[in-house]
Design a protein around this nucleic acid. Structure first.
Length: 759
DNA sequence: CAATTCGGGATCTGC
DNA sequence: TCCCGAATTG
């Protein structure tokens, strides 16, 4: 360590680290950064925009910056607010910052929505919402809207609900004059207003409110604004390219005269326009925040150069960009492979085969990720992998929390904390069937004093049919029991999981769901049990329950335990969900016109699809495969698919091709390179993979071998034989052993146990 | 009021 | 294909 660097602060920090035994010295964590990264970390004073390309060490820069501000600039950790978009990203950021500087745990590292939730609970009285509010998701919004505007059918309601959340993403209230830019129909403001009225009656909020309400409050109330300004001296925003207008306004409000603001993002990775993300936020940041310093991070540490070449090729087809070219730090590497397959089933089979072969050769399952455009595409892979006994994790498909049985339980919990919650009430009052139908429910909802639905049940039970009366009173007694359960004053409240367990048994939902379907019922019970398990961390009292509901609503990534248990598993994931992730080997599937890009896209939307493809490509560290099928099951039908226009945009020189390319693709290649057909395979394989030639030369058909486990054998076939149907571009040989078994082996990975026998 | 059946319509991405 | 809602029936 340079003696001259021992500033007083530095000494203090060093002393602290010695004391706690954790953390890294600032010299150390700064020394691993490149000059631009270091500049970004050390910058202070004016607003800062970091344009960080994929894999450019963005997270490292942010976390180091947090640590640096605490250790070197003497900023108190709780004066730092860092917001991200996903809980996963927030958790990772917190973890890495803590590793660099233990004090970082005291800083506010949150998602936008959890910040909003925290803010609204802090000021719930000002906002006119229930301090015990829960958050309604999209499905709840639709249900609520249907109740607010009964003339709508479900389809219309979900369309309008989507528009309402979009309006909130743009921070537009029902009386806003700009509302027509979201939806021009004259009824829309009326529907929106009716929805808002209904929502405020329940005391709850939707996702859009978590951002919009804090903005409106800060805009209207100076004392709230100054309170925030004194709480946070530093505001950092990650993935800024995906922020929406409401989030931009939130940032504007949070940044006072003395606040240091720093945003990080990549315009080429903006993929959430459909949900209100506004690329303009990042493109015009420097205009909104005067004297902005812009730092570009263009060195990519993640992907091998051939992968990055293809990524750069692809994104250069977009017109709406700031302009940025990633430079690979990792020079050597394999060209991405485009694989053309006859049908969907071949795609799943191919993936399974590739993964399994690599696994036999020592490559862990977790190295692989299968990317697809829509969640529905995961099903084929799940079936195939189950069959092939390949462990896998599906990221974010039918999310745990939105399964019917889970939503039922959560609705009971939500109703226990807030008896004005109409959505929860309607969901659970007659489930299992208690003879309480829509008519009875309406009577309660419309006449309940102060919208207290439980009180409504009590008051009107006498005027109900005998059957309904029994059911309603049974329900009231059940909920009353739960309420008194959590309101018991005790220094040792017990665990919330006990309460969830009781609910499953006493509500009859456990029985109800397990009787619904013999096979699925078991799974549903297991899911409910999983909710019990996750509640074990919370106290069995009102505040514990609130924390739990908050956690569930804002963390949409809760996965099933059995999936988490399996560390070594292939990742099945939508392209959108891969934001911020990386994998050694990536397969992007379904590259067909209409699937990816999805059909009916405007030119502008096509650019977003292309950015999505770019995001997918840049997830790959070492190997990238792109698959495209000729036939696919669609809407229950088998359809002929055209190749994705994105594949036609690729430079044939920068990729390898396996399988039978469709005509369009061949035409494209004809003047540059003859694509690999079945006949030309051997030659082109050799050309593209010199290392294969070496292997193929050694492990020739007809040679005798000895294997440690299987004994003596004869190489009877290789996958470079022209009649072989394997698509793989590894060198694979078939060996007939004397013991009788026929094995497929990759010599590349078997050098330790397989040897040639001289004739 | 609940269970069953039938037909139409959708099917993207997600905090 | 599958899911949802309207219509029909018990």
């Amino acid at each position: 360590m340079d003696e001259s660097d021992r500033t007083p602060k530095n000494l203090a920090a060093t002393a602290f680290f010695q004391m706690t035994g954790v953390g890294v010295s600032s010299e150390e964590y700064l020394s691993v950064l490149n000059p631009e990264q270091k500049e970004a970390v050390k910058h202070s004073g004016s607003p800062l925009l970091i344009l960080a390309g994929a894999g450019s060490g963005k997270t490292r820069v942010i976390t180091t910056k947090i640590a640096y501000m605490i250790d070197e600039l003497g900023i108190l950790p709780w004066h730092i607010l860092a917001v991200t978009f996903t809980k996963k990203a927030a958790a990772e950021m917190a973890e890495r910052a803590k590793h660099l500087s233990p004090n970082a745990v005291k800083s506010h590292i949150r998602t936008f929505h959890s910040f909003g939730s925290w803010f609204l609970r802090l000021y719930s009285s000002n906002a006119g919402i229930d301090p015990n509010f829960t958050v309604y998701d999209d499905d709840d919004m639709v249900t609520l809207l249907l109740k607010a505007v009964p003339s709508l059918n479900r389809q219309q309601a979900s369309f309008i609900a989507h528009k309402i959340s979009l309006a909130k993403d743009y921070c537009l209230t029902p009386d806003s004059s700009e509302l027509s830019t979201i939806e021009s129909s004259p009824e829309f403001p009326v529907y929106y207003a009716a929805y808002e009225k209904k929502l405020r009656q329940t005391g709850n909020v939707d996702f859009g409110d978590l951002i919009m309400l804090p903005v409106l409050m800060m805009e209207a109330d100076e004392s709230v604004r100054t309170d925030m300004h004194s709480r946070f001296q530093v505001v950092l925003v990650d993935e800024y390219q995906d922020s929406n207008v409401a989030q931009f306004k939130l940032l504007q409000q949070l940044v006072g005269e003395k606040t240091y603001v720093c945003v990080v993002g990549d315009d080429d990775q903006s993929i959430y326009k459909f949900r209100g993300a506004e690329v303009q936020n990042i493109l015009t940041f420097h205009e909104c925040f005067p004297n902005t310093k812009i730092i570009k991070l263009e060195r990519n540490y993640r992907s091998v150069s051939p992968v990055l070449t293809v990524a750069n090729d692809m994104i250069s087809n977009n017109t709406q960009r700031l302009g940025k070219e990633l430079v690979a730090v990792r020079e050597k590497g394999k060209k991405p492979t485009v694989i053309f397959l006859p049908a969907q089933k071949d795609e799943t089979k191919l993936c399974a085969d590739m993964i399994e072969k690599a696994h036999k050769g020592g490559c862990p399952y977790s190295d692989w990720a299968i990317l697809y455009r829509t969640n529905a595409q995961s099903l084929g892979f799940e079936t195939e992998f189950l069959h092939a006994k390949i462990p896998y994790t599906v990221v974010g498909s039918l999310k745990f929390y939105q399964r019917e049985e889970i939503k039922d339980l959560l609705s009971i919990l939500a109703f226990v904390v807030n008896q004005k919650d109409e959505i929860a009430f309607r969901r659970i009052i007659n489930k299992p069937a208690r003879g309480v139908g829509g008519v009875t429910q309406d009577k309660v909802v419309l006449n309940a004093p102060n919208h207290d639905l439980l009180e409504g049940c009590r008051l009107f039970s006498s005027s109900m049919s005998k059957k309904a009366k029994t059911g309603v009173l049974e329900f009231v007694a059940f909920i009353d029991g739960l309420i008194s359960d959590i309101d018991v004053e005790s220094s040792e409240p017990g665990k919330l999981s006990e309460l969830v367990d009781i609910i499953i048994k006493k509500s009859g939902l456990g029985e109800y769901h397990s009787n619904q379907d013999e096979i699925a019922g078991t799974q549903r019970l297991a899911n409910m049990q999983e909710l019990v398990n996750s509640a074990v961390l919370y106290n069995k009292n009102r505040s514990g329950l609130l924390e739990f509901l908050d956690h569930i609503e804002l963390d949409r990534t809760l996965e099933l335990q059995n999936q988490e248990d399996n560390q070594d598993a292939v990742t099945l994931i939508t392209l959108h969900n891969t934001k911020g992730l990386e994998f050694p080997r990536v397969i992007i599937t379904g590259l067909e016109d209409g699937i990816f890009p999805r059909k009916d896209k405007t030119e502008e939307e096509l650019e977003e699809e292309r950015r999505l493809f770019y995001v997918g490509i840049t997830r790959a560290k070492d190997e990238l495969y792109l698959t495209s099928c000729g036939l696919r099951q669609l809407y229950g039908r088998t359809e002929y698919m055209k190749v994705s226009p994105f594949l036609l945009e690729l430079d044939p020189k920068h990729i390898d091709v396996v399988g039978k390319p469709p005509l369009e693709f061949k035409t494209l290649c004809s003047d540059t390179q003859e694509p690999n057909t079945q006949q030309g395979r051997l030659a082109s394989f050799m050309e593209n993979h010199p290392e294969l030639a070496e292997l193929a030369d050694k492990w020739k058909k007809g040679r005798k071998v000895y294997h440690d486990d299987w004994g003596y054998g004869l190489i009877v076939q290789t996958n470079l034989d022209d009649n072989c149907s394997d698509y793989d571009d590894e060198y694979v040989i078939n060996i007939q052993f004397e013991s009788g078994s026929l094995k497929k082996i990759m010599p590349k990975y078997q050098s330790h146990s397989l040897m040639l026998i001289k004739d």
